[in-house]
Amino acid sequence: MDPEIIEKIVQEMAAFTPDMGNIEGVPMLQNICNEWDTIHSFQARDGDVVVASYPKSGTTWMQEIMDFILQEGDVEKSLRAPCFIKVPFLEMAKTSLELANTMPSPRLLKIHLPVHLVPPSFWEKNTKIVYVARNPKDCMVSYYYFQKSDQTLPDPGPFENYFNVFLSGNVSWGSWFDHVIGWWKAKDRHQILYIFYEDMIEDPQREIRKVMTFLEKDLSEDVLQKILQHTSFESMKKNPMVNFSVLPNSVIDQSISPFMRKVSWGSWFDHVIGWWKAKDRHQILYIFDEDMIEVSYGCPNGVFMSSVFLIFFFKPSIVHFGQDPQREIQKVMTFLEKDLPDEVLQKIVQHTSFKMIKNMQTKGSCRVSL
């Protein structure tokens, strides 16, 4: 580990401002926009491996898993440098790009870019990419707290306002919806392994095996158990090479919110409960996802909003099948003051069925279910 490189990156990040610009319509930190030509012209090499994700989707967790796999479970090698040094984040700073360009192959790199902004050389070199997707509700909450602590990002303000900001995609790296859908559509055209954060929590050993197979690493059971142990939340939270504690408060102020808050799903509920309490004071219709079953599974947003009303799809961990989508659609019709005939209602039920939307998804006309 070279202290001078760390200091150089820290100085660059500390000089970042929270000003925003955009690249091809995608909101992005102005500092990234200023370096965009260099980032986009980055030259991939044969053997490069990339971890990609929307921010706050388990990127650090996955990059540690991938690094351990590539180092074949060698703990000492995994501790060779902070995660942002050993796995250069291409959008972070000039020095990160310089570091990536001077690293020996094979390289492990990190990006948060939407798929259409990925440097073309990645596709030319048929680079292997592991993409991690996380459900938008937990992702939004995690991103909110990260923006509070990361001094290079705009102040998120109160959560009630951030809810709208996130849904509109007016955050750095753009819309969560466009991001996960774009990468999903690209996964069958390129060497992309699409991993779900929730699956990593449910069975990390199973997901690590998927990554090992994708990276063509046949590691022993002992090595797999070592990777599981050292990439657990408890281990990573204590590891200064992973938890970003080497960065000063001028870059990430962890007294506001720790970089590694929790590895879980469902933490969004603490924020959603506020909407439940507010439903009787405002024009809010609260819809339970398990009551709809057939309706909402085809598209991942889980939330639909306009300036007049809010429909909140609440998806608990246990889904009770055999509920009544027609009844829930009628609730929404009443809420929207739409008196539609029964034949129209049946048409809506038919065309929003899981089977119908799944067929539309296959043809590329609907968002993938997350």
Rank of each mutant, 00 (worst) to 15 (best):
H179S: 04
K338I: 11
A278R: 13
D46S: 13
I6T: 14
F312A: 01
K137S: 06
Y297A: 07
L228P: 02
I9Q: 11
E198N: 00
P204N: 07
M356D: 14
D178N: 05
K137G: 02
V180R: 03
A100R: 04
G47H: 05
A93W: 09
Q43M: 12
E198F: 03
I357W: 07
S267L: 02
S232A: 09
I252S: 07
S41G: 13
K315V: 03
I208P: 04
W176G: 02
V251Q: 06
F321W: 10
F354M: 05
Q43F: 11
D253V: 13
E24A: 09
E343I: 09
K315P: 03
K315T: 05
S175Y: 08
S307F: 13
R206V: 06
G21E: 14
R134D: 07
Q191A: 04
D253C: 13
G21V: 01
C83K: 15
I65V: 14
V87R: 00
E12D: 07
L285D: 00
A15I: 12
G274K: 13
I6R: 04
N31G: 10
Q191R: 00
Y144Q: 03
P18T: 02
H320G: 08
Y131G: 04
M241V: 10
N31T: 14
L193D: 06
L193T: 02
D37F: 03
I65E: 03
Q225V: 12
Y197H: 04
I181C: 00
V26T: 12
F354T: 14
S172H: 05
L108I: 11
K8M: 03
F312C: 10
E234F: 10
C33G: 11
V223K: 00
F166S: 04
Q225E: 15
A44D: 09
F42R: 01
K262Q: 09
Y131C: 11
M28L: 08
H112R: 09
A52E: 09
V115T: 11
I293V: 15
G21I: 02
S175F: 05
D324H: 11
V242L: 12
I227N: 00
S264T: 08
S96P: 06
K8H: 10
Y162T: 09
T59N: 05
